[in-house]
Design a binder for these strands. Structure first.
Lengths: 196, 196
DNA sequence: CGCGTTCATTGAACTAGGACAAGAACCTCA
DNA sequence: TGAGGTTCTTGTCCTAGTTCAATGAACGCG
């Protein structure tokens, strides 16, 4: 149970609350290690989300479909990010989002049933997940700010700056769908960039 | 302390966790009742947010300014909503948003310092605020979905449907800034609506 | 190796929504 | 009563971004 596989998740969680060894073990014991090959769909719209997945290795994406069937990317999750539909999971309501693997990935999953047990057994855990929600909320707020106040070109530059490796790991049309523009337009933006 | 002033906030919180009487009293004792006249600025960008305010009566608004100085409305908070910059409050970082009163309002405020005490004294409270964050997150996600996938006209119709009273309480140009469009364009949308 | 599929680019025509300007209809407060 | 701010409307011109279509490039996969 002390495998290096768990070093990073424990490190990240400990930054929120100090957690005695035995509680850490309880936490790790509740995790399911899941190897998912590229293109696996972990969640489909209409299903209730029953997991929160920590990306130990690989890259995941969550997105939804608008009424024309166009994808809108919500999040890319690479190493040390969580991916889930937390609202669907917490409230047991069907999700509207899809979650898929963009690379062969290793996930550490907490399942719906086990989470309540953990909250009971590990007093500091509510706090950890509350802080995760906060970070989530902050990120989403930034995103809304940017979408409403900045033109696509600046949003693209900002994404490149924060995640320089992203274009090497995910196809360009998905970045476009994250920015809220068409792949064609992103292509034109890029052409404009190199021209300058 | 049993005034009817507190009936609704207690009702709302109890829907998240059962809370024994004495804990309720502890919670209420930590609240500051604040009467704010119309146009009061409760928070300005650059300040650290040190409160979460429950709107007992009246109407508040949170917004930020883009680089051209244009307002973008984040939220309207009428009776029984909370308004705050939870991220700034939790992490002690300066906020980028403004919070102001659109009507003379009565607020029930939890201040930054007291909140940690409350978490310590009332075990169920982490859960309550975690659920509030979840609802917040859900709302923000819906908003991002809508902004990216729907044209302004449908977004406007959706807002009217969810908050039919809104146009009677807040000026139209603020609704425009909530929708992410200019006041002029909203005016034209409305003209188009009645024409049909 | 070759073949289909997914991916990126480019161009031309179009549209949702913005910027600016001017006027009308208001509150509000002395 | 009036004066000045605020709010809403309308029109004209302009631009960021879309749609559609065509062409290659690159990537699995048998």
């Amino acid at each position: 149970m002390n495998e290096e596989r768990y070093a990073r998740i424990i490190g990240n969680i400990s930054r929120c609350t100090a957690m005695p060894y035995e509680q850490q073990q309880k936490f790790l014991a509740a995790l399911e290690v899941k190897q998912v090959p590229k293109k696996t769909q972990l969640l489909r719209a209409g299903e209730v989300c029953d997991f929160e997945a920590y990306v130990n290795k690989g890259c995941m994406r969550s997105y939804f479909l608008d009424e024309h069937g166009h994808e809108v990317t919500l999040q890319f999750a690479t190493e040390d990010w969580w991916v889930s539909d937390v609202v669907s999971m917490a409230e047991g309501k069907p999700s509207r989002i899809f979650i898929e693997a963009l690379e062969d990935s290793e996930l550490l999953c907490i399942h719906r049933g086990k989470k309540e047990d953990l909250y009971r057994d590990i007093p500091g855990l509510e706090r950890v997940f509350r802080m995760m929600l906060l970070r989530n909320l902050g990120a989403l707020q930034d995103r809304l700010f940017a979408t409403m106040a900045w033109p696509a070109e600046e949003r693209y530059a900002a994404v490149l700056k924060r995640f320089p490796e992203l274009p090497n790991r995910v196809p360009q049309h998905m970045i476009a769908s994250y920015l809220g523009i068409t792949p064609e337009f992103l292509s034109k933006l890029r052409a404009r960039r190199v021209a300058k």
